[in-house]
Nucleic acid binder design. Sequence first.
DNA 1: CTGAAAGCGCTAACAT
DNA 2: ATGTTAGCGCTTTCAG
Lengths: 343, 343
Amino acid sequence: MTGRRVTMSDVARSAGVSQTTASVVLSGRTDLRISEAASARVHEAAKTLGYRPNVTARSLRTKTTQTIGLVSDALTTTPFAGEAIRGALEAAAARDHLLFITETGGTDSSESTLVNALLDRQVDAVILASMYTRYVTPPKELHGHRVVLLNCLAPGFGAPCVVPDEVEAGRNAGRMLTEHGHRSGIWAIGGHKAVPATPEGNFAGNERMRGLQEVLRAARTGLDGVVECEWNAEDGYRETRRLLQDGSPPRALVCSTDRLSFGAYQALAEAGLSVPDDVTVVSFDDQDIASWLRPALTTLALPHYQMGHLAVETVLSGKPLEPRVHRVAMPVRQRGSVGPPRP
Amino acid sequence: MTGRRVTMSDVARSAGVSQTTASVVLSGRTDLRISEAASARVHEAAKTLGYRPNVTARSLRTKTTQTIGLVSDALTTTPFAGEAIRGALEAAAARDHLLFITETGGTDSSESTLVNALLDRQVDAVILASMYTRYVTPPKELHGHRVVLLNCLAPGFGAPCVVPDEVEAGRNAGRMLTEHGHRSGIWAIGGHKAVPATPEGNFAGNERMRGLQEVLRAARTGLDGVVECEWNAEDGYRETRRLLQDGSPPRALVCSTDRLSFGAYQALAEAGLSVPDDVTVVSFDDQDIASWLRPALTTLALPHYQMGHLAVETVLSGKPLEPRVHRVAMPVRQRGSVGPPRP
DNA sequence: CTGAAAGCGCTAACAT
DNA sequence: ATGTTAGCGCTTTCAG
């Protein structure tokens, strides 16, 4: 240790002014006061002494800590979702705030504990985040605090939400197909994610399918079928393989995640089918593998960076927080897996 | 807002004791004092009023904030490195600490700024992290503070470092090969990562190659060659393809990352070669794709979770921080890509 | 234009 | 066993 940290009193003494004056000068308040000379002496002293403010002490008076708490179920674990944190980090840095990051691992009790730990440290706001888009019920401790929901919804709670615009992404998937002339042999793999465990499907699944079907219907066509399954690589492989064995071969696959597409590619290669000449593939998420595949995968990107950024921007805006749902556009990553159907 | 937060004075008043008594009771100090009755009344009052301590205020007196700062160059961006954060988070939570996460994006000036922001908030310690193992020079502001380096080294700085045990991982890669009977046709792809930009290679590359060569030499054999290139999927594809075209075909590939292996798989499949029957592949990192590939990839896992955990454990241990290098074992993920050489 | 004094919520000597 | 007092480092009335 280099000994005691230098305080504002030290600076004041060294500059030959009162602590008050030092405070006014150092906080950069221009409300007509303090002589040029005094001001200069204070800055000078602060600099030579290497003064740094104690933000904790300041907070005690000002009731603001320049600090935000982010509590997520498992954000750091999921691959590209780290982008949401990065977006949040950059937005926070731009406004001189620091971020406490916490992870509940999914249990509600730990969520309460963490929210309390955050609140006990007087965070100015909290962002409640989920690794995949879903409905949540925020812990009661959060009532009366500035809260924004990131990648989740809580209709009754009254806080703003930031989610991907999945419906429009679904429409864009459909448009790419119809614009390339696809009218039949179109299959969705993954679909609503309506597996036995969650028969009603999940948010992304439902909205993507809705947008997709809407566009296909408008083009006077539709899906040949929807294969409901989990959204992992092995499911993509297994289900595509099964599809290839059952009668009529697909002309286009709409996979709900890049992981599914990855598995689908394996099954197609095994069957000697080429992408996009024999089968077109359009996908969602834009994970890293999307660009590693050969041909690279055309996919609708989850805008996690923007979402994290927007969530922090919103919560720091100073404006009253309205329970509005912000839908962030999912950009089309046009790559090599989409082509016209084989005649 | 639910109005003013309830303070310790409120609790004391409501329980009919002095604030000091409330403090002693609520901080759970058992140093023989306070009557059962008073203690009970305080707890009772705290509970019904919903009292929560103001940790910020407490910190002002105690000089400890129960808070750690983690500053990394780009940890959240890189896929599986989020595991390091998760490990740090869990170790911190286990000791009732919260983590400030920050990212510099690689610039030194922003590193200084962030370290200052952290120090101004009186963090008890800071973890300096890097996305890939390398040598760093910590900002001078950090001198005299509790610091642990995560996934980076700074020999002159005097702080403990936590890095993967890459040499032993290299040895394990070599052992898998020799144990399966490989004696020739062994190629390393990626190698030291000694590309024109960094001719001396990077930490992981150098140590992996060292361990690998050591074992091969002990088995009275060696590498047929080392292909120096970047560590991405496309490089794996390109270089493997080139290797397959140049004369003698490889029997075993040691790829420096799973991304390289991914590219290698594509080139091998294209050439009609099968893994592991025609070519054995052993890899490093254990990214998600490692288990998605067919056959799944045998790889040496980067122990990011453990590293993050250990870094926080070390910095919170209370013990003096010695400039020791902790090498964390890289577990072998035995999967399907290694087999005996084709006779 | 500047300084003295109070106080944010809490802990810790020091009385009693 | 409990209360009184001081003070952590800072901001903010309020007087000069």
